[in-house]
Amino acid sequence: MSEHGDRAAFLDRIRSRQGRPAGGGPHPPPPAPDVVPELAYRTLDGVDHDDPFALLPVFVAAARAAEATVDVVDDEVPAELLLRFVGDHDVRTAVTSREPEAVALGGALAAAGVSVAPYDREVAAAADLAITSATHGIAATGSVVVDSASAGSRAVSLLPKIHLCVLPITRLVASHADVLRGQQRPMPSGRVLITGPSRTGDIEQRLTLGAHGPVALHIVVVR
């Protein structure tokens, strides 16, 4: 921890000028709202924000709109689903994050013949599949939240070709406000709201999945 440059001079310069923007034009700025409003998503209309089962269909639709795929399973991930997934995506190697849900699923995959290892940078960079577990699912946007502190790394959900994320339904919240607002120190060093797979539209605006991160995001919601 260190500080470089002249903090006092830097801030004095700002202090000598800061203030509310000068008005005078025909579009004067409004005062700041007393309470910062939350975005109100129409898809959440009439949905009980505290009932994850009510949030589930909203989440599934939003995640699919963001090009993720979603399965909803009852208890643990059924073996046949796993086998199908492994077959469909030609998964031979996988890495897991540290969460118990991810490790458990890794065990099941290993039993299905996939070579499963705990996260390591080089291994992950060559792996077909990442298995993680989300700290939250965000219904309004179809996002999953992965923390470096619980996952044990920042890039486990990023380096492999496919990302499989386990989301226990009780972790569903309505909106990003429920995740972002109220955060306090100490923070995980890295927390990421993941909304669909990695993508780019940089070449002729053509949506291409799997730019630098996973080409596919598969979310398994466990009821």
């Binding site: 790394s153 060093s189 990421v192 709201l193």
Partner: peptide, 20 residues
């Protein structure tokens, strides 16, 4: 709705973290 990745970074690699 959101970009693919909204990343919140709070300092260097945490204890026990394998990268960062």
């Amino acid at each position: 709705a959101l970009s693919s990745y909204t990343t919140v970074l709070s300092g260097p690699r945490g204890e026990d973290e394998a990268d960062g």
